[in-house]
């Protein structure tokens, strides 16, 4: 009965609700729906589930028990977590600054015309596209204190052999070396895009005024590519904070926990100790930390916007 009553009314409604000119087809939603299902399933659901788990005491195999915020309360009292935060910040700062400087220099060179430029640019970006585990494996061999080629190269210029990733004091700088080697090309590509978009007039007048190479770079190029540098710094920061493959494959956070970043510690908590409740809390705080760092970069950008010019 209800059905019979409904049917005519919808038929009646259709024309009144959508007069000829106003009628719009279902739009582009059908194009988006399949992707939406996938994104909700593999991206949004994990976010929500992680939040839920972070409020529970849950070891894999046992039943979850609601504990409120106590997983979060545990974080500031966990020395291993605090060390990991510090090591992450050091690792990230170095892995942003060094590729940024070297990548900008490389972009200035690649901006010039020279033979084989296209091919060499292709070669230059190989490190960031190559499989990180394969790269890490070869770097591990190169870092080897007795048989590694790096100590041999150092000996050629009279520097005593180093322990590289095998000593707590040098492990993070050594990993940053790999990260810099890997990701300088990305900064180079972004800055190169910026250089290609530069106007030529300021350079012509600078040349007429007899400005030095450094003056041109400092007062014309740098302010003009600043937006691109900022984008590069942002991307580099996000990727460096999350760096996993290189660290895990080369040191697994060692020696001891000297190179254990938040991401590596998170892995241990979740998949070595199977403490998924606490692990989820770390994941949430980790995510918030990345957002905070991104916001800090935005503030720095706003502050320096006037002063660079």
């Amino acid at each position: 009965m209800a059905r019979a009553g409904l049917a005519p009314s919808t038929v009646e409604l259709a024309p009144t609700e959508a007069p000829a000119a106003r009628w719009r087809p279902p739009g582009y939603w059908p194009f988006v729906v399949p992707a939406l299902v996938v994104v909700v399933g593999v991206i949004v659901f994990p976010w929500a589930f992680t939040l839920w788990m972070s409020l529970h005491e849950w070891k894999v195999g046992a039943d979850p028990a609601f504990v409120g915020l106590s997983n979060y309360a545990r974080l500031p009292t966990d020395p291993r977590f605090l060390d990991a935060v510090w090591q992450t910040l050091v690792y990230t700062a170095l892995s942003v600054v060094l590729p940024l400087i070297l990548g900008t220099l490389a972009a200035c060179v690649f901006h010039a015309r020279f033979p084989l430029r296209g091919f060499l640019r292709g070669v230059f970006i190989l490190p960031m596209m190559a499989t990180p585990v394969a790269i890490a494996l070869v770097w591990t061999m190169m870092f080897h204190p007795q048989l590694g080629v790096l100590n041999y190269l150092l000996s050629l210029i009279g520097i005593p052999p180093q322990l590289w990733v095998f000593h707590p004091a040098t492990v993070i700088p050594s990993l940053v070396l790999v990260e810099t080697w890997q990701w300088t090309p990305l900064v180079m590509l972004i800055v190169l895009g910026g250089l290609a978009a530069l106007p030529t007039e300021p350079y012509e007048s600078a040349q007429i005024d007899g400005a030095s190479l450094w003056q041109v770079f400092r007062h014309i190029t740098l302010p003009l590519v600043a937006p691109f540098l900022f984008v590069a710094a942002m991307i580099r920061m996000i990727d460096a904070v999350k760096s996993f493959d290189i660290i895990f494959a080369i040191t697994q956070g060692g020696p001891g926990t000297a190179s254990e970043t938040i991401n590596i510690y998170l892995y241990s908590v979740a998949f070595a100790y199977y403490d998924v409740g606490y692990g989820s809390a770390i994941a949430v705080v980790f995510f918030l930390l990345i957002i905070a760092l991104a916001a800090a970069l935005l503030v720095v950008r706003k502050r320096t916007q006037g002063s660079v010019e």
């Binding site: 582009y28 988006v32 994104v39 991206i43 994990p46 998949f271 995510f287 957002i291």
Partner: peptide
């Protein structure tokens, strides 16, 4: 295509946040 034609680029914020999220935070729930 749909997002570009709907001029709904803001919907892509989800993609940006996904880009920021550490891979391990998908791994535990999944």
């Amino acid at each position: 295509y749909g997002i570009a034609r709907m001029k709904a680029a803001k919907a892509a914020v989800v993609i940006l946040v996904a880009r920021i999220t550490p891979g391990l935070s998908y791994l535990i729930p999944l």
